[in-house]
């Protein structure tokens, strides 16, 4: 099949980018979207032109490296898949395909379709962890966790941090990402000691990174390749409210700030 690509090309972070039309010829409909880009890049290289830069790693939908807004939808038109799991059979022969990077002030473009997602790392570092004492691990069965809590925590823990929620959000808000991280740990006993400081620190960091605000339009949920529900955003809102009232009284053993 043949497709016409409209691709965002930008030499580096400082350069001014623009959409460029690139023809994709003789593409197998069984190839993945990234394999299609590989094929197009081979052609560009053979002509002595710069290949299209894009992020990719595991190519099996679990690492969170691949991105791309395809015809306005993060990770393309298929539901609950990453770009690497998207196949060219989802497109028509001769179709025009727009490929753009995640668009957010907090995700600056590094080159072409590659954006800097370190803002997510900084949010994660602000509180998305549990502190564990060194020494031999305790027996796993010492910490009983109700099945429904474990399931809910896992529903949040499947977040791969790809940033599709930000890309899809009309306000470029990372609420779904932050909520998934807060929710996952708030539901588990291991997350309890830092439960209040975590949500406050992560929301503070989210604000500092220059992301937008959530207006409950749920575009994030629809775009999320891991089908994470906005239920977690509601939980984060509750956690935040709870922590705001409790933060002045730090728990015993926790010095507070």
């Amino acid at each position: 099949m043949d497709v016409t690509l409209h691709v965002w090309r930008q030499k580096n972070a400082k350069a001014k980018g623009a959409m460029e039309v690139i023809e994709g010829k003789d593409i197998s409909e069984h190839s993945s979207f990234l394999e299609m880009l590989d094929t197009v890049n081979e052609t560009l290289l053979s002509k002595g032109q710069e290949p299209i830069a894009f992020d990719h790693d595991c190519r099996e939908g679990i690492c969170g490296a691949c991105s791309l807004v395809i015809n306005g939808e993060p990770h393309g038109p298929e539901y609950g898949t990453t770009t690497c799991q998207l196949h060219m059979r989802s497109f028509k022969n001769g179709q025009h395909i727009f490929i753009e990077p995640w668009r957010a002030k907090a995700f600056p473009v590094i080159r072409d379709l590659v954006v800097d997602r370190e803002a997510f790392d900084r949010i994660q570092q602000a509180g998305g962890f549990v502190s564990v004492n060194v020494g031999s691990p305790q027996d796993a069965n010492c910490l009983p966790i109700a099945k429904q809590d474990a399931d809910k925590a896992f529903d949040a823990a499947v977040c791969i941090g790809c940033g599709a929620c930000v890309a899809a959000c009309k306000n470029a808000s990372p609420m779904l990402f932050v909520a998934a991280k807060v929710s996952q740990l708030a539901l588990l006993p291991q997350g309890q000691p830092e439960r209040e400081s975590r949500v406050l620190a992560m929301v503070d960091q989210m604000k500092k990174e220059g992301f937008g605000n959530c207006s409950n339009q749920y575009e994030c949920e629809a775009a999320c390749p891991k089908e994470i529900s906005v239920e977690h955003i509601a939980r984060m809102n509750r956690e935040y409210l709870r922590a705001s009232f409790l933060e002045e009284a730090p728990k015993a053993g926790h010095g507070g700030d």
Partner: peptide, 21 residues
């Protein structure tokens, strides 16, 4: 919030789409 939201995406998408909003 509107000012902040507009500032959060300085470059708009060339191809805008809405999934379920």
């Amino acid at each position: 919030l509107t000012i902040e939201n507009k500032a959060a995406r300085p470059v708009p998408y060339a191809h805008e789409a809405t999934i379920q909003a």
